[in-house]
Amino acid sequence: MVGRMWEWLRGKTPLVDAFLAAPLVFFSLPGFLSGAYGMSFVQYAVVTVGLLLPLVLRRTFPRTVFAVIALVSCVQWLADVVPLPANIALFMGLYTVTAGFTLRWGIAAALVVETGAVMSTYSYSREFGDGRSSFVMLTVMIAGVWLLGLHMRTRRAYLRSLEERAERLERERDAEVKMAMAAERAGIARELHDVVAHNVSVIVVQADGASYAIEHDVDRAKQALEAISTTGRYALGEMRRLLGVLREDDDAGAYAPQPGVAELDDLVGQVRASGLPVTFEVAGTPPDLSQGRQLTVFRIVQEALTNTLKHGGPRVSATVRLDYRWDAVEIKVDDDGRGAAAADDGRGHGLMGMRERAAVYGGTVRAAPRAGGGFEVQARIPTGENE
């Protein structure tokens, strides 16, 4: 309820300003009733209304209101009218201009009021005696109001800077979230490409073999169909694991672990079962690799073998070699197939995905035809966290 009232009042600036000027009307009432200050009721009312009425628009048109009040005060001085309680409106106008505008405007407003103090002191000291004490008091009041307005202007500027900083941080956070989402989508796209491209290639090879052997060798056709079934189930499991990441409300528990270097034997066995002879060699002692690096090694080998299945041609064989060094894992996958002579439809993302995976860990990938035929993929994945 209080919050709604405050929001409503913030939109009714003239009403609030009128409320804040009400005490000056109250202080001016005795002059209306007693006819003090040596003025008639009409004269007193005209000067008081001329000084107080503009305050209703004090924050809507600050400089205009201050100029009007200063002009009325000047006419009041020229008409030899003594200072009234309503002349406090000058101080309210001074505060508003100083708090709401630049330092130059604040200084200009203070000089205008100080000029009025000098004029009134000079004029009325002849009637009331020595006016030095009055002048000092007025100057102190002017300085106090000016400093208060300056403080409020500085505070408001500080609060605005905090709000702008909060908005900027919020925009930066949103941008970082979008970048993270884009990176996650790119990572999922790479994973889906690796899973689908490899397993579908194996399924296609096995299906071609089954269709050829079904009339001549039923047992081999059955083996090919069993390999298709196994590969399809594995691909489904991998895709469910990847798509499960996108389920925001799925709290069913951990998904199957991502493959690593330990699963390379199964990968090679799967490729061999599809009809591609593969030699798998390991040199050195495997270091303690992070899961991300292990997945990168696995996917690079998988993609290289998939390309051999797709583009190597008939009677092709491949060799996979892992060389564990003290600072990196070196991967080499080559084949004796058609190499650069293989047709390229221009829609593959495998080599790009391998390079992107390796670059995450500061690694490199080189893929090119071999001299004398075939194709070769070489990759180096640093094992140090600072590389």
Rank of each mutant, 00 (worst) to 15 (best):
A252I: 09
D194K: 01
A186T: 12
M152P: 00
Q378L: 14
D288K: 07
T285I: 12
Q43C: 02
T13E: 05
V205K: 12
A371D: 14
I228Y: 04
V205Y: 03
A224L: 15
R171M: 10
D288H: 09
G129R: 06
D265W: 08
V360N: 02
D174M: 13
R380E: 10
A341V: 04
S125R: 08
V47H: 07
Y37M: 03
A379C: 09
F26G: 05
F19E: 00
G209S: 14
G129H: 11
M352V: 09
V297M: 04
A359K: 10
D251P: 00
L94H: 05
R338C: 01
T308E: 08
V301I: 15
V333D: 05
S211L: 15
H216R: 15
P83V: 07
V218W: 15
A108M: 14
Y37D: 04
V177C: 00
V200Y: 12
E170H: 13
R155A: 13
K12T: 03
A379P: 05
Y37E: 08
D344G: 01
I69F: 04
G353H: 11
G362R: 06
L225I: 15
R4F: 07
A379L: 09
V271G: 00
P287D: 04
L192Q: 02
V282T: 13
R153L: 05
V297I: 15
G50Y: 05
N199Q: 11
Y44D: 01
E281S: 03
Y37A: 14
H151F: 14
E163P: 01
R357F: 06
M354F: 07
R126D: 00
T139K: 01
I142T: 11
E387L: 14
K310Q: 11
A157C: 07
P62R: 06
R321Y: 06
A262Y: 11
I228R: 02
V196E: 02
A70S: 14
G3A: 13
G374Q: 02
L90C: 10
V204I: 12
L51G: 00
A21G: 10
Y44E: 06
K178T: 09
G187M: 09
G144T: 15
G350I: 07
L243T: 10
D194H: 14
K12G: 01
A189Y: 05
D335A: 02
A213S: 13
P369K: 06
S317F: 11
R104D: 06
A186C: 01
A304F: 10
A67Y: 05
V75K: 00
V329S: 02
T96V: 15
R357I: 06
V2L: 13
G11V: 06
V46A: 04
I188F: 04
A304R: 04
